[in-house]
Computed example of a mutant assay.
Amino acid sequence: MVENQRWLDILAHITLILGVVVVAFPVYIAFIASTHHPVEFMSGMMPLLPGDNMVNTYTEVLSGGVRAQMTVPLTLMLTNSLIMALSIAIGKIVISILSAFAIVYFRFPFRMTAFWMIFITLMLPVEVRIVPTFKVVADLGLLNSYAGLSIPLIASATATFLFRQVFLTIPDELMEAARIDGAGPMKFFRDILLPLSRTNIAALFVILFIYGWNQYLWPILVTTDADFYTIVAGIKRMADVVDSEPLWNFIMATAVLAMLPPVLVVIFMQRLFVKGLVETEK
């Protein structure tokens, strides 16, 4: 029985508000810092109200980069990050859903062995296997390329496991009905499994897009050509300056702009994202 007490509602709302403040306050500080001159940021007394330098800062950042500290325009870094995030998200979903389809609906030798071998790779993130992965990418000539940024991060044991669990909840009667109607495996996959997995695909796409967008270590390792810099790695390179102080207003403005694409993806796909996370019945 759920108790309906006023003080519990008030406590819940206070907890939620405090959680939002804790999460949102650093973002607010980053925005405030982008509206002031870098001298105020370095003074250690950061104002809590917007300054008068916001229009100038964002105009200069968006107009082609800050010549003192940005080696490439911001729009190019955003484009590179977008290509990388979309390639990783779409690639992971396509490979994972086909792998799960084969494991659940096909009978072949060592089927479960193959699944568990995929699942065990969860213990081997990119950071653990980064040296051999870099060696393979370098030997294949994929450094400073979109393929080198994306392909090593496409395989996903987590997504394969999630799709496998989704397919196991789909009644076998649907497969039998499709077989009676003369549908082949790929027609069954395309016309029945994909529509039933739509919300799960949307939820997974949001998570994987943010995962690809926020990649930091791998892009730094495989890109030495400024034309392939991503936005997250670009922020780090802006802060690493020699013989001068970092222009923190431009760095913070870039960080604020870098947060917008993931936020927009979550907002536009919020309904499918939430439904995909909580839906348990087909």
Rank of each mutant, 00 (worst) to 15 (best):
R67Q: 01
D227E: 05
G148Q: 05
I17C: 12
I97D: 01
K92Q: 15
F110E: 06
R190G: 08
T133G: 11
Y146A: 15
V126G: 12
R111K: 15
A85N: 05
N4Q: 13
L168I: 10
A233H: 06
E60A: 10
R6Q: 03
N56E: 14
R107E: 06
I32Q: 09
K236E: 03
L217P: 09
V166N: 00
F188V: 06
A24K: 03
L174Q: 06
M46G: 06
L221T: 01
N144L: 05
F228T: 07
V39Q: 15
V266A: 09
K282Y: 13
S99I: 00
V128H: 09
V266T: 12
F115A: 11
N144Y: 10
I32N: 06
P73W: 00
N144S: 01
V137H: 01
P219K: 07
L49W: 04
F110K: 04
T230C: 07
V66E: 05
V232I: 15
S34P: 13
L277C: 02
V265K: 02
Q215R: 12
T59P: 01
T15Y: 09
V131Y: 07
F209Q: 00
P185V: 07
A33N: 10
A147V: 01
W7V: 14
W248V: 11
R67K: 13
L62M: 14
L153C: 02
I120V: 15
D9W: 02
P109Y: 04
Y105A: 09
L260F: 03
G184W: 08
V22D: 11
T158S: 11
L193K: 08
M84S: 10
K135F: 13
P47I: 07
E60C: 09
D225F: 02
I103W: 11
L16S: 05
M186Y: 14
F189P: 07
L153W: 04
I154E: 02
M77I: 10
L124W: 15
L48V: 05
M186N: 03
I170L: 03
K236G: 10
R198L: 14
L98A: 10
I14D: 02
N214T: 01
V242C: 04
